Each structure stands twice: as C-alpha cells, then as structure tokens.
Amino acid sequence: MSSQTPPGETSTSSQRVKPKTLTTLQNAKRDQTPIAMITAYDAGFARLAMEAEIDILLVGDSLGMVVQGQRDTLSVTMHDMIYHTKMVRRGAPSGLVMADLPFLSDTDTPTVLRNAGRLIQEGGADIVKIEATAAKADLVQAMTDAGIAVCAHVGLLPQKVRQLGGYRVRGRDIDDASAVMRDAEVLTHAGAAMVLVECVPSTLGARIAKSIDVPVIGIGAGVDVDGQVLVMNDLLGMNPHPARFVRDFLRGRGAILQALQAYASAVRSRSFPAEHEGFV
C-alpha cells in the first residue's frame, strides 16, 4: 500500500506555499502578522503541517516526553535530535525547520558549535534553538559568528526542571521579570535571530516582544507576542493532563489537517491564546 504523497515530497497544495525564511518572519513582526509554529517529529506530520501553512516546524527535545515516554526532556541525545530532524526535513523539504540543542550539548563554545553544526549539516535544520540565560551570550555570539541562525529560549527552561523542582511560571515578581527581560535583550544583542519565551505572565510576554527587534514566539506567554508555538501532540488532544496554555484544536473536527489549519487560523486572528490560556 502506498500513500498519496510519496515520502520526501510535498503535496501540490503545500508546494504552492512560498517557503518561509528568517526575512519572512522579520517582515511578519514588522507587519504585526502573527507567526504560527508547531513541533514536529516525523515526516508525516511535517507534511500535514506544510499543507496547513504552518510557518515554522520545531523539532523539539519535547520528543523525549511525547514520543519516547520519558518524564522530561533530559534523556534526549544528539543522535535523537538529528534522527528526528532528518525525518521532518524529508517531510517538509521547503519548510522552515528549527531544532533544539538537547541537554548538555552546549556546555562550551567548541561543543555548541560542533552540535549546532551537526543539526544543520546532518539533520537539515535551518535554525538552532538553545535554552539560555544571559550567561550563555558568548555561545549565541559564537554560533552567530559561525553563520548559524539561533533562536534563544528564555523564561521557563525545561532542561532545568529537576534543578528547579518542577515546571514553574517565570517572571511573576519584579526581579524575576527583569531577569527574563534581560536574558532576551542580552541574547538578542549577542546575535539571536529569534526568541522563544515560555511560561511567563502575558504582560511580560508583551513587553519582551515590544522591547526587541527580532520575532518573539510564545508558549504560555499571552497573545501579544509575535507568534505562538504548541507541541503537536498537545494541540491534537493527546495529552491527558494538558498545561493551562494548551488548546485541543482537534475537538469538533474530523481530521488532523483541519485541526492544524484551525490552530494556524486562531494564531493569526489572535483568538489563541485566550486570556484564560495565559498567566498573570
């Protein structure tokens, strides 16, 4: 039995979509057009995401939890990330693909350059995402100087979940909000082409998006950022205990493609996230 669209190829509808680039995203921020981003871990879902005209595919280390069944992301390896990035690239040959640097893959400059380079050369990623505070500005600078497009992940950092004792909203007090804001500003100054901010009050998400020039993608950061990202499995209702910022877009619809299209539409109309799907 064969599928309608051969592996490694996109459907006719997805081929008509103009490929996204960092310039596309920068223009979207300038024009106040929200950016829709989701995670993807294999070729099939990557193809569907392209048909739904999703702007960015994130091969997240969240695969440790949603694909491998681990309790957190810390067991994900570079081998895992390259393997899944390759599959996503095959499913979305012209898509804009971002890949995570997994736990302990960014301990120093030679290590981060080697691993980020592998995500691009072996995996086919366009952008590399690093969980970072201002203390990692030198790593972001080194990657940028090497020609690597970097997305800095600030706010809640899942790779520190065991150190923090759980998943906690960041930036609820003045000092912590200032720290998250400084992280975003310092990492952007170091060369980050994008920022992803996770689990912060909606007001802080809006402040970060207004204070820096690069696109700011939020997850649990309110509606007033430059775009949204959700884990694919979460938006399809596959998580029995979803986070507050998750919405099941498959409910009431007959197909996964319709759910992805509904998600993209809700992001672009700013009807997602609603007030109750954010933090104060």
Score class of each variant (00 low, 15 high):
P6M: 11
G8C: 05
T10S: 15
T10K: 13
S11K: 04
S14T: 05
Q15G: 03
V17A: 12
T21W: 00
T23N: 04
T23A: 01
T24K: 00
Q26A: 15
A28Q: 15
K29M: 05
A36I: 11
A36T: 02
Y41D: 07
Y41L: 02
D42T: 04
G44T: 15
F45S: 12
A46I: 13
R47I: 08
L48C: 08
A49T: 02
M50T: 14
E51M: 14
E53K: 12
I54N: 08
I54L: 09
I54W: 08
I54E: 00
D55Y: 11
I56E: 10
L58T: 09
V59R: 13
L63H: 03
L63E: 06
V67P: 01
R71V: 13
T73N: 05
S75P: 07
M81I: 06
Y83G: 04
V88S: 06
V88Q: 05
G91L: 11
G95T: 01
G95C: 02
G95N: 02
V97E: 02
M98W: 00
D106P: 00
T107L: 14
P110T: 01
P110L: 00
T111A: 11
T111K: 11
L113A: 02
I120T: 08
Q121C: 06
G123F: 14
G124T: 11
D126K: 04
V128I: 14
V128K: 05
K129S: 02
K129R: 04
E131V: 15
T133I: 13
L139C: 12
Q141W: 14
M143C: 13
D145C: 07
G147N: 07
A152Y: 04
G155Q: 09
L157Q: 09
P158E: 00
P158V: 05
V161R: 09
V161M: 13
R162L: 11
R162C: 07
G165P: 12
G166K: 13
R168N: 14
D173W: 04
A177Y: 06
A177I: 06
S178I: 00
A179Q: 09
A179R: 11
M181G: 04
D183E: 07
V186K: 00
T188H: 05
A193Q: 12
A193I: 07
V195Q: 07
V200G: 07
V200M: 10
V200A: 09
P201R: 07
R207P: 09
A209F: 03
I212S: 03
D213Q: 14
P215I: 02
I217W: 12
I217K: 06
G218W: 00
G220P: 04
A221R: 04
V223C: 14
D224F: 06
Q228T: 09
Q228Y: 11
V229I: 09
V229G: 00
L235S: 06
G237W: 04
R244D: 07
F245N: 12
V246Y: 15
G252W: 01
Q258I: 01
L260W: 10
A262M: 06
Y263C: 05
A266K: 10
V267W: 04
S269K: 14
F272E: 01
A274G: 12
A274Y: 01
E275Y: 08
H276G: 12
H276P: 07
E277M: 10
E277C: 08
F279L: 08
